[in-house]
Simulated scan of single mutants.
Amino acid sequence: MSRPFTLLLVEDELADAELFQDMLVEVAPDIQVTHVEHGQAALDHLTRTQPGRPDLIVLDLNMPVMNGHDFLAQAKTIPALRGIPVLVLSTSDHPEDIHRAYDGQASGYVLKPGTYQEYTQVLSTIQAYWRGLVKLPSVEELTGT
């Protein structure tokens, strides 16, 4: 039996995190989601001994403690984390944010949708792309075990 697809959601707004998780259940109920509230909490979670690596990190940009840009800058310097794809999901469509995210090695950048229908479509597309279309490295390949 294959390992379930896992996702780390880094989002400071509890209502946004709950909405994301509720809507994801509608399009992909088998995805396991872990939620943390800022970049430092994500780094702490990812660098703990044997925390299990997520298949995908979904990252907000504007957060307290450590924002998304700072998370990318630090996470992508850690060899064990470098290969985990990071999808930025943000309300910002500012070119500077988009450029900085890709410059920081984000794997993609998606604007947070404005309606329920758009959000459902975006999550459906995200899960289809990251779970079916692309080939991701295994946990063993990421950790060298």
Results as ranks from 00 to 15, higher is better:
Y119Q: 11
P79K: 14
P4C: 03
G68N: 07
E96D: 12
E13H: 13
P29T: 07
E96Q: 14
I126G: 00
D30W: 03
S107Q: 11
L46W: 08
G132S: 09
G39I: 12
R82M: 06
P54M: 09
E118L: 14
T47S: 08
A42K: 11
Q40Y: 04
N67W: 04
L19V: 11
A42Q: 09
D93L: 09
G108A: 14
E140P: 00
I126D: 00
L61T: 08
L111V: 14
E141S: 08
D16K: 11
V134F: 04
E140C: 04
Q74G: 00
Q40N: 05
L8S: 02
Q121I: 08
Y129F: 14
L111Q: 13
T34P: 00
T125M: 12
M63Q: 10
F20H: 03
V25L: 09
T115E: 03
D22T: 11
S107A: 14
S90D: 03
T115K: 12
R131N: 02
A106Q: 10
P85I: 06
G132C: 07
L89V: 06
V25A: 08
V139D: 10
I84G: 00
F20D: 00
L56W: 06
Y109R: 12
A73C: 01
A80K: 15
S92H: 05
L19R: 13
T115A: 05
F5K: 12
L24P: 01
K76C: 01
D103R: 15
E37V: 14
L56P: 01
H45V: 00
P137V: 09
I57V: 15
L14C: 02
S107F: 04
I126S: 02
L43P: 02
E118R: 15
D55K: 13
S92A: 07
P85W: 06
Y102R: 13
H94E: 08
F20Q: 04
H45T: 06
H69P: 01
Q74M: 10
D22H: 09
D12C: 08
V65R: 15
L72A: 04
E18H: 05
D93K: 11
M63D: 06
F5V: 07
H35P: 00
E118H: 14
L8F: 04
H99S: 01
H38T: 05
M63L: 12
D60M: 13
L111A: 06
L61N: 03
A42C: 06
T125R: 15
S138T: 15
A42M: 09
L81I: 11
I126K: 08
Q105W: 09
A128M: 10
G108T: 07
P29N: 06
L136I: 09
S107D: 07
T6E: 09
E13M: 13
Y119I: 06
E140Y: 07
P95K: 11
L87K: 08
L43W: 07
V86F: 03
